[in-house]
Nucleic acid binder design. Structure first.
Lengths: 375, 375
DNA sequence: CTGAAAGCGCTAACAT
DNA sequence: ATGTTAGCGCTTTCAG
């Protein structure tokens, strides 16, 4: 039997148990490598009969090394199953950890997942790994995550800002050279790069499409909370389109929803108005789902719909859903590219980069005004 | 002006530029904290006039400390913007990093995003953070990611195994006490916990539903590659249901697709057979999308469909889509719970835990056999 | 209650 | 081509 020296992976349990930890083997006992300590550089060096530095050289390929030693070292590494401790390396080198901290509101939302995917694709060959966490759009959770990431000395910090978050606490980090990029929404209180969709123009295009097809009363169902950046921008685009067409802006036609269920309720509420809208504009993908499900439930094919953000089965609906598609993958790629440029020394002024949206006409916006709907 | 000592965040650039780095300030120059070095424990200690250990004690709350020192230390920490270096701490403490490495095939797929979400929710109050990467179902990429994670001394390793991956290289790690859990698919060559859906039973239920509604020729469109665990299990469930009903198994009715586009093509191929199926079973959510879009394109409302895995707008389709719903959030939670139990010392035998699927009947499976479809 | 010294695993800077 | 020494930022150990 091996003496059970508390292994590294039991450190957490040890803390809880409050058991005093012994750092050396008890007399007459030897360590059993397979259960106890992970092998270190020194172990490999001892095995081969060289110095730790030589092993380091072979593994990192900096200094020279004879073919023979190299072989021996590699053999010992394989034999012992040695894997260099990256934390120890980083601490000595003094550089940042090769991770990129990413904070998004919701891991389960495919929009943000796709953003993350774009980031990963872009940074992979730089050897950076994603450290991810979800904020649930809570500024406190966002801050806690950021602090954790910063304590890890991440190379890059990317945030989809929560509503109400203030980012001035990051000033010193940015000044110290940490690349910080905000995605999907701009940061607050910090001059850092951000990458956002053309929300206002996109909403404008979508609403204009509805107007072009004869709609005069167009409902808007946006995100909650209402001061969310994307909601504000998209509402602005909605209003601009109305104004441009000389149409009045009715507060009663504007409402909001935080999830699919609320969006369905909001839909039903708008349609129940004395003078109901003939078309609906969905402020995001979740709202779109709610609207569509509610319309399907009520068999209301007479209501035109345009949604901000594409949804998976848009083309299979009847009518197929017209959308203002975002490009989350591109948002991720762009944000990552900007961050890497900063990492490479780009010291230019903070910029806001926009990623274009695209109106995809599929039919749901083209319904004629149903003056005769019940005929 | 501050002398621009290469800051920590420029380490990467320095490597590339090959510029020799100087470790001390040049004569007559002083470091400018805001631009250069992050403050360390020693800096805080110096500021207050105490030893580093005292600062450490205050911050970690282990040893005793006078109220006065505590205040002074905290003030200095705030003033300098000190954040303890977690890598340095971990290296000294010898414990694992407080991260959980998670490898999934695709960050953009909401199924895996939701699994990740379930994991995060479960481990958050243990202070663990997610280190994530996508394998693209490539065993080599999976292995490379795992090695990177292991080099970081993660506390837990969770993998959605790629097809063809062998996990015996993890044996030593598991023996050393590293909790390893496979999610969605079991691992290969390693006795470790895994958490999977009741794939076979779920598929059986879905197909039985179709049979109960009179279908005798049921097409199966599954994942590619065909040896993917979930595809094998679901196909087995399909065959079992047929056999149970005394129906013959036709190889020609079984096909596969890797993405939505291929699934649409497969659908069209099956429907073009001399003796085409009257119902289709979709082996996963992506395939389901392809099938539905293709049927919509061809206006084929006469074809019944049941899909494995729920899709967002299932209830808004016409007919609404009947599915065998998985519970990805629960898969994540279960996997995380199992891993935490291991971390807490659970040394029992490796188990395979199943998360039940649920047949959600919405209508698409109930279509009568369309003997008169063209009438 | 506080400090000095040693050391975690690794690599930079000089040896040789 | 290789070894030695020192030290990254922190905590442990042992003395006050």
């Amino acid at each position: 039997m091996c003496p059970r020296r508390p292994s590294a992976h039991h450190a957490i349990r040890r803390l809880e148990a409050g058991r005093p930890s012994r750092s050396g083997p008890r007399s007459g006992e030897r360590y059993c490598h397979s259960v106890n300590r992970r092998p270190t550089l020194a172990d490999v060096a001892r095995e081969v009969g060289v110095s730790a530095k030589t092993v380091s050289r072979v593994l990192n390929g900096d200094g020279p090394a004879s073919a023979r030693t190299r072989e021996q070292v590699l053999a010992a590494v394989a034999k012992l199953g040695f894997q260099p401790n990256l934390m120890a390396r980083n601490i000595r080198v003094g550089g940042p950890d090769t991770t990129i901290g990413l904070i998004i509101p919701d891991l389960g939302n495919p929009f943000f997942g796709t953003v993350a995917s774009g980031i990963e694709d872009t940074v992979r060959d730089r050897g950076l790994t994603l450290l991810m966490g979800s904020s649930a759009d809570d500024p406190d959770r966002e801050r806690a995550l950021a602090d954790k990431f910063l304590a890890r000395r991440i190379s890059i910090l990317m945030i989809v800002p929560s509503v109400g978050a203030d980012h001035s606490y990051l000033k010193a980090h940015r000044a110290a050279g940490l690349p910080i990029v905000f995605a999907d929404r701009p940061g607050v209180g910090l001059a850092a790069d951000s990458v956002v969709s053309t929300n206002r123009a996109g909403a404008h295009d979508g609403v204009t499409h509805l107007i072009a097809h004869g709609h005069r009363r167009i409902g808007f169902i946006g995100d909650l909370p209402t001061n969310l950046y994307t909601r504000r921008e998209r509402l602005a685009g909605y209003r601009a389109a109305l104004q441009e067409a000389g149409l009045p802006y009715h507060r009663t036609l504007v409402t909001n929803a935080h999830d699919q269920h609320e969006a369905a309720a909001a839909t039903s509420r708008l349609l129940g108005l004395a003078d109901p809208p003939t078309a609906l504009f969905a402020g995001n993908n979740i709202v779109a789902l709610g609207i569509i499900v509610e319309l399907a439930r009520g068999k209301r094919k007479d209501i035109a719909v345009v949604a901000f953000d594409d949804v998976p089965l848009a083309e299979a609906l009847e009518p197929a859903l017209t959308v203002v598609a975002q490009n989350p993958e591109e948002i991720g790629r762009t944000a990552a590219t900007a961050a890497l440029a900063r990492l490479d020394g780009d010291r230019s002024r903070a910029r806001t980069i926009t990623v274009p949206t695209r109106l995809i006409v599929r039919g749901s916006g083209e319904r004629p005004v149903p003056a005769l709907q019940k005929a």
